[in-house]
Amino acid sequence: MNADQIQSIARRTIELETASVAGLQAFLNEDFVKAVQAVYDSKGRLVVSGIGKSAIVAQKIVATLNSTGTPALYMHAADAIHGDLGMVQDSDVVMIISKSGESPEIKVLVPLIRNFGNTLIGMVGNDQSFLAKQSDIVLNTTVSKEACPNNLAPTSSTTAQMVMGDTLAVCLMELSGFNGQDFAKFHPGGNLGKRLYLRVRDLYVHNQRPSIGPDARLKEIIISISGSRLGVTAVVDDQQRVLGVITDGDLRRMLEKESNLQSIQAADIMTRNPKHIGPDELAIDALELLRTHDITQLVVIAPDNQYLGVLHLHDLIKEGLI
């Protein structure tokens, strides 16, 4: 098999699965609305179950729901009929995922859920199946053809299930007003969490706080900049309000132009109205500000223009935001 043949197979697979996903739009009917409303109105959790590949999809859907504000539990269909049914509480909604809707484990599990009296949602690829007929609400994920060349291995069908699960989760997010701050609560770890909760105040306080007065001479300026290892010093008045900043780059440019260095004062070479940020801003917003203006430091200023410190690009790099 040559490269062209491999690429052709890959393109065909993507085309078939894309068509399966697009076909779901026709199934966003009244039952879909009922499913969203049933989960939203529930005082309990959404318990999601399945067998085989559908069980793996169920786990992914549960993970998505939990991370976006909808309490959910995964229950394997085979384990359910051997004791795990105990996790289903009276107020829970149960969703069973199956392509055929006829698996032996599903046929055993469904009557048990019906006896419990829980609302049963069937996500099924056959609307004439046992599961579809026994469910209170049906989410139709029928596909015309699997991407598998033998039309056997779950490929298009599991993709359709995943997308239907995402659709359900996003609708529930919108209904509940789930926002970025809520998302951060459930994702405190890793770089994603840091992007959502890490703030400027968490970083700049670990740095030195270099500052000089507007009448500071060249030696004092150099010592202040080099001593902090931040490549910058703030120029402040007697009330610690920021008048400007001087960077090591400002010093180099000044030295290239000036020959009379004895009379140089901080006020002569400082950059007025420097780029700054507040302590409560997100660190990721600070990064965007640094990138936009192609700079490596930001002065951190309180609402009353009081000088608080310096945030350096390296602080963000150390936190893995870049």
Rank of each mutant, 00 (worst) to 15 (best):
D280F: 05
T64K: 10
I301F: 01
Y204L: 04
A22N: 11
L316W: 01
S144F: 03
K185F: 04
M87W: 00
S259P: 00
P71D: 13
T292G: 08
K194M: 08
T296M: 06
G309D: 01
V170W: 03
I322G: 09
V200P: 00
E319K: 15
I295P: 01
L24A: 11
Y40I: 00
M254R: 03
S49Q: 06
H187S: 11
P104K: 14
A302L: 04
Q181N: 13
G165H: 10
V62R: 10
G125F: 07
S103T: 15
D237P: 02
R45P: 00
L255C: 05
D250T: 09
Q208Y: 03
I121A: 12
G86A: 12
T158A: 12
S49P: 00
P111G: 14
V163F: 09
G177W: 02
L218C: 05
I322F: 12
Q262I: 05
V36M: 10
I113H: 07
N29T: 12
S67Q: 10
T70A: 13
H293I: 01
V242K: 04
K257E: 12
S103W: 01
R12T: 12
E30A: 15
H76V: 00
K318H: 12
A35C: 07
S20M: 04
I221D: 11
N118H: 09
L311Q: 03
G231H: 08
A38R: 09
H82K: 07
Q262R: 11
P274L: 11
I137F: 05
L16Y: 01
T159I: 09
H82W: 03
P154H: 11
D79Q: 13
H82C: 11
Y74A: 15
I97G: 11
G44K: 07
K257S: 14
Q240W: 00
S263Y: 02
D215W: 02
G165F: 06
V57Q: 06
V242I: 15
D92R: 09
T64G: 13
I222C: 15
E174K: 15
I223W: 03
D304G: 10
V200T: 09
K60Q: 07
A38Y: 01
K34S: 14
M75T: 03
C148I: 04
V245T: 15
L287W: 05
G213H: 11
I221S: 10
V93A: 12
K194V: 05
I97K: 04
K194I: 03
P214Y: 13
A169M: 05
N126P: 01
H206P: 00
S224C: 10
H76K: 01
K257V: 10
E281S: 14
A58G: 15
L65N: 06
R45K: 15
Q59K: 15
G23Q: 10
V310L: 12
I137S: 10
D202T: 02
A55E: 07
S176I: 00
M173V: 08
G122D: 08
I222F: 10
Q89W: 00
Y197C: 10
R252E: 03
N207R: 04
Q239W: 00
M1E: 08
A286W: 01
Q265T: 14
T167Q: 06
Q181F: 04
T158V: 12
A169Q: 05
T159P: 00
P279L: 09
N140S: 14
Q134K: 14
N273A: 14
V205C: 07
S226W: 02
Q37Y: 02
A153M: 02
P104F: 06
K194F: 02
T155A: 14
L192S: 11
